[in-house]
């Protein structure tokens, strides 16, 4: 396939859309299972499946903000645990909303979505934006089913970072670097959330999305290395592997264990 064979690329994306739809259905099932598990637990304890009766303080996000960690959380009881679950989902949605808006803005730039853009980079930005939209919908869907408020705003902390960075963007490499940062924060946050949420279903959901954000980062790291190396022509599907620099084989996955030190606190993007 030629590096600029957009039709071939679109066909690949259609194929992956089919795969993604299957995966999305699985994720929705996971969320439904999670919600059902929570409601059943609540029903068993109180005789009511109304989460509002158990968690009157949906808006009181400060309720558990001072909790030091999941251990304290567990000791605080199931209501606090579920509140944190909702906060984690809302924070996740805030990160996804920011990613969507950032890719949307990037696609208005000539070197990402315009005439000067590499076709593969443009298609990747479009598809990645769509995947982040699905993640946000999934996280907010779970929040809504639990009676919480959907998080429709971008993460305030990192929105400020993006806002500060945008005027300094001079080329595709700058955009890719910004995207790497956002994908990394999301992946680290969800990897850590796996240990913070209260049910197996929700752990699986956060892990399932963490891996995808990490994949976005891997590809962006490879793209950035080629852009910075003055070889954007090698960003193609398939790439001309024979011409790739040696280090391109490893630049996409720098850690044997995904770090979590940049993970957003659970309450960071919770709805106030």
């Amino acid at each position: 396939m030629s590096p600029i064979d957009e039709r071939g690329l679109r066909e690949l994306m259609v194929e992956s859309d089919d795969l993604q739809s299957d995966a999305m259905r699985t994720a929705e099932r996971d969320l439904d299972d999670y919600v059902e598990a929570v409601l059943e637990t609540h029903s068993g304890r109180t005789g009511s499946r109304d989460p509002g009766g158990m968690w009157p303080g949906w808006g009181k996000t400060g309720l558990v903000a001072g909790l030091a960690g999941a251990g304290t959380l567990l000791a605080a009881g199931p209501a606090a645990a579920t509140t944190v679950d909702v906060q984690a989902l809302q924070t996740a949605a805030s990160l996804e909303n920011l990613a969507v808006s950032t890719y949307k803005t990037a696609l208005t730039l000539p070197f990402i979505g315009g005439a000067d853009a590499n076709a593969v980079v443009k298609a990747f930005a479009e598809k990645t934006m769509a995947q982040h939209t699905e993640h946000a919908e999934a996280f907010n869907g779970a929040v809504a089913k639990l009676g919480g408020k959907a998080q429709n705003d971008p993460n305030a902390k990192y929105a400020a970072v993006v806002q500060k960075a945008v005027p300094t963007i001079k080329g595709a490499g700058d955009v890719v670097a910004l995207a790497i940062s956002l994908e990394d924060v999301a992946a680290q946050t969800y990897a850590k959330n796996v240990s913070q949420v209260s049910t197996p279903e929700l752990r699986q959901l956060f892990a399932g999305v963490a891996g995808v954000e990490a994949q976005h980062k891997a590809i962006l790291l490879a793209v950035k290395a080629l852009v910075d190396g003055g070889a954007p022509q090698l960003i193609a599907l398939p790439p001309d592997a024979a011409k790739l620099p040696d280090a391109a084989g490893s630049v996409g996955f720098p850690d044997a264990y995904y770090p979590t030190d940049k993970a957003s606190p659970v309450e960071e993007g919770a709805v106030k």
């Binding site: 992956s16 699985t26 598809k127 993640h135 995808v212 994949q215 490879a222």
Partner: peptide, 16 residues
């Protein structure tokens, strides 16, 4: 990516 396939085909990593 090396195989010329879309590098992030799924929005969620499943368990099937």
């Amino acid at each position: 990516f090396v195989l010329g396939q879309y590098p992030v085909p799924d929005a969620f990593i499943g368990v099937d």
